[in-house]
Amino acid sequence: MPNVLVFAESRGTDIRKVGLEAVTAARALADAVGGEVHALVGGPPGIAGKAAALGQYGADAVFVCENAAFAHYARETIAATIAERAKSYRAVVLPFSATGRDLGPRLAAKLDAPIAADIVSLSASGDTITVKHPGYANKVIVTLAVTGPLAVLSLRPSAFTPKEAPRTPRTESITASAATERVAVKEVLEGARGKLDLGEAPVIVSGGRGLRAPENFKLVEDLAAAFGNAAVGATRAVTDEGWRPVSDQIGQTGRQVSPQLYVAVGISGAIQHLAGMRTAKTIVAINKDPEAPIFKVADYGVVGDVFEVVPALTDAVREAKKGH
C-alpha cells in the first residue's frame, strides 16, 4: 500500500506544532494516494505518552523511539532510524524546521529519493507529487513535479494548519538504528531553548533600527509578552549591530516566516526584509515616517514614534487579553 511516513518532530517530550502540521499534510497525501499515515516520533523517555495525540491528527500507526540521546537533535542517529524504515513508503514528510532542514537532504541521499524542500502545498496523482515552493527568497512561487516511487517532502512551518482527523493509532516502540554522531554539540548558547520559535509563533513582534539601542528592545519584548503567544524578530540592521542574535533575523537571508500577525516596530520595510515576512496573514507597522515602504504592505499602519505608540499598544493588548 502507498503509505506515508511522517517525522513528527518533538522538543523534549512534547510534539512540536510543526510536527502536527506534518501529520496533517501526510494525512491529506495518504488520502490522495489511498494509504495510511505512519508517524515516527523520537524523544527522551516520556515521549511515548504523546503517541495518542498523533492519532488525533490522523496517524494510523505511531512508531515511538524513546532514547535519552534524543533529548537533543542526534542528526546521524535520527537520519539512520528513519531511513531504515522509509524504503517502502510513497513519501517521507517532515517539517522544514532547523532539524528538518538538516534531516531532509540526509534522508533523500540515503534513500536515493528526490526531495522537495520548504513546500507550501502538495497534491498527488500517479507517480507524480506536485508541490509549490516559494523560491527566489519568496519572490517567485515555483511549482515542482517530483517523480519516482518515493519522495522526501519538507513543509514550511505554518503553511499547513493542524487539523483533527481522530483515530486510535497502533503504536509500536522501536529502537534507534546504530550510527556514530561525528558532529558533537559542545555548547548551546543563549539558553533560549524552549523560547517560542519564530517559525512557529502565531504572532511575531519585530524591531528595527528605529529602536535606536539594544536596551530599547524591552519595548518589543513587553509587547510580545502582552500577546502571550509571540516571538521577537529583528532586521539585519539590528543583527549587524549586534543588538540581537543573528538567529532572530527575518528576511531574505534570515528566517522566512508566515505568522498570523506580524508587528513591525521601527522597520523601514526594505525589500530584503519584506522577503521574509510578506506572507504573514496580517501586518501592522509602526514607523514615524509616513513614506516608509513598510506601510505599502501593512494592513494597519500607525504613523508615530515607537517610544510613544508601543507602550500604549502593549497596555491595550494586555487589556484586550484580559477580557478573553
Binding site: A98, V185, A192
Partner: peptide
C-alpha cells in the same frame, strides 16, 4: 544559528 539559540559543534 538554530531556532532561537546558537550552538557550538566540533567535528
Amino acid at each position: 544559528e538554530i531556532e532561537g539559540a546558537g550552538e557550538i559543534v566540533e567535528f
